[in-house]
Design a protein around this nucleic acid. Structure first.
Lengths: 224, 224
DNA sequence: CTTGACACAGAACAGGCGTTCGAGTATCAT
DNA sequence: ATGATACTCGAACGCCTGTTCTGTGTCAAG
């Protein structure tokens, strides 16, 4: 009977086991049992699987909850599963139309976007985030492109330097700007330094709709 | 003995179970057993847990792998765990310096960014993606801001309309542009329509480093 | 009051599953 | 050769776990 004898370190067998655990977990959403690993990797004895699992644990490639059924989990980098936030995509945001924040909007989010917890800024991990898809080029001064997805956190006011989604009554449009409260009123600063800030007098009515938490742009191929 | 009698539908008990499974899964990376659920939710009998679990399954809030240990998993929207891609953050990209694609770069990625599989465009779900953090304002014509994270896929050539990271020998700089091959040479189109395209003659040397797959901007508070 | 759906407890069963142990085989350095 | 090391097998032990069955108290409808 041929045995591989790969000296020390991680061999082909180890790799196969790691791969199987990953794909199993991806499909079934729970770890495989020792016997399932054995079956998938052509190992006829549970003790052999255990043997390899121990090595993989020593190599810091996975962790085991001893004595617990299906207690193997891949360590950080290999683990395909992680905490994510599901943010409802509530519709579109475009110039000339007010945006709908979740409480005002009547419709169920058809779709949603998934964001890794680890990617969320500050500790904005609240459950009340929502997402909007930008339509049109009206937000280019905010460095936000047509098709971009903006993640928002509902808010009625903001602190200086935060980017907010704001509704301007006088202009009848929604815009994304950095917000600064000043003596005379408000200064709304575009993200793109090539554009000048908008000064708003205290007398004008503005409505902060939410803080921009994140912007995501998927690059599909572009026309023309 | 008081019993809640919440008529039909999902009651407080159901909610508690759902919450427990979610947090358990988040912490331990595998589903809880029936007995563990019972203990956490003050249910003294496994049969009662089973009873609720069946209801929750009928309500389509979770799925059960019958006969399998720890075979309960939350359905889509409730499931905090999902497939994600771990993309190594290989360093920074800035004007005036060539970017390092993984094969060329000697250093291990100190950090990495996690992207939900569901967010990946086209079927760019390859394992060879890498990420770079933009430093400086030199990419504003590509609608990419200082601090943004760009996800790249290594490539030596591109199709028309794809956004690429490209090294221009003559200018000694890296830039992000939409790529178009034309008769005379190449047209590199900025994402921002306010900027003019760069025309490159065939005689000039260009090196495509990768295709831009995604751009992510985390909005922390901004200075000034 | 009876009836039946509903919520719950407890116990017992059977199979799932991790663990352990004894033993065997191949490869390699000495 | 010989022992050390790496690897494999099969079986058995015993806890873990899902399942099932019987029984009890509560509450609303008939």
């Amino acid at each position: 009977m041929m045995m591989v004898r790969k000296s020390k370190g991680i061999g082909e067998r180890h790799q196969k086991i790691l791969g199987f655990i990953a794909s199993y977990q991806r499909e079934r959403k729970h770890p495989p049992s020792i016997r399932e690993i054995g079956e998938a990797c052509d190992i006829s004895s549970t003790s052999v699987v255990n043997y390899y699992l121990d090595q993989l644990e020593k190599a810091n490639l996975l962790q085991r909850d001893r004595k617990i059924s299906r207690g193997t989990r891949l360590t950080g980098d290999n683990n395909p599963l992680g905490d994510m936030l599901r943010v409802p995509l509530m519709g579109v945001i475009q110039a000339g139309e007010p945006i709908l924040v979740p409480s005002e909007s009547p419709f169920t989010p058809e779709d949603s976007v998934e964001i890794a917890m680890s990617m969320m800024p500050s500790r904005e991990k609240g459950k009340d985030l929502f997402a909007l898809q930008v339509q049109g080029d009206s937000m280019i001064d905010a460095m936000v492109n047509d098709g971009d997805i903006v993640i928002l956190k509902p808010a009625q006011d903001a602190r200086n330097g935060e980017m907010v989604a704001i509704w301007l009554d006088e202009r009848s449009e929604t815009t994304l700007k950095y917000y600064y409260k000043e003596k005379e009123g408000y200064r709304l600063q575009p993200a793109n330094p090539a554009f000048k800030p908008i000064m708003i007098k205290k007398t004008e009515a503005i409505q902060i709709k939410g803080k921009v938490v994140m912007v995501i742009r998927k690059m599909e191929r572009q026309a023309a």
